[in-house]
Amino acid sequence: MNDIWNWELAWEALPTLLVGFFTVTLLVTVVSTAIAAILGLVIAIARRSAPKPIAAVIRFVIDFIRMTPIVVQLLFAYYAFTNIDPLTIGIAVFGIHYSTYMAEVYRAGIESVPKGQWEATTALSMSRRRTWVAVIIPQAVRATVPALGNYAISMFKDTPFLLSIGVVEMVQAGLVFGGNHFKYIEAITLAGIIFLLASYPTSLLICRLEKRLAFRN
C-alpha cells in the first residue's frame, strides 16, 4: 500500500467492473428506460382522458412516487415481494419511478399540440383512439426525445442505488473488489471514469439532437 495508485490493481479490477457494468448497470438502464417511456405515456394519456377525480388520484400517486427516494422504494419492493429476484425488482422500480418524470414530459408535449389539431380531429369525426395514435402522439412525442435521453442518463447514474437491495452492479462490484484488496482507490475511481465516459458523450449527443429539434420547429 505504498503507492497511491496501483496500475496492476486497476487493470485487475477492470474486468470485474465491466461485468457489473454490462450485466446490470447497462441492462437496468436500457430496460427501465423502455418501461419508463411506455408507462409514462400511458400515465400521461390516462391523466388527460380520465374523469377529474381519477385524474387527481393519478396526479397524487405520481407526485408521491416522484418526491420520495428511489432507495426507499427499492427497499420497500424488495421486502414486500420476497419471491421476486432483486434484479427484476430493481428494473421495475427504476422503470416506475422514472415513468412519473416521463409522464410530466409527455404532458407538456401533449399540451404543446395546438388546440386546432384536436378541433380538426373532431371536425373529421375521428375516433378518440385514432386521434391519439395518428395525430396527437406523433406530434407530442417527437419533442420529448431529448428529455427521455436525459432521464436515461440520470437513471444510469442512479443504478448504484441497487446495492441497497444486494444487486451487484458496477459500483458494488468495485466496492467488493476494493474490500478484498484492502484498497479502494483504483476500483472506485475507475467506476467513476466509466460513468463519465459513458454519460458525457451521450449527453453531448442529446444536446445536439435537442438543438436540431428546436431548429426544425
Binding site: 447514474k157 442512479d158 448504484p160 442505488f161 446495492l163 459500483v171 466496492l175 479502494y184 472506485i188 475511481t189 467506476a191 467513476g192 471514469i193 460513468f195 463519465l196 454519460s199 458525457y200 449527453s203
Partner: peptide, 12 residues
C-alpha cells in the same frame, strides 16, 4: 461531477 454518479463520489 455531473458525469461520475453521486454514489461513486460518496464512496470515493
Amino acid at each position: 461531477f455531473r458525469g461520475t454518479s453521486l454514489v461513486v463520489q460518496l464512496f470515493w
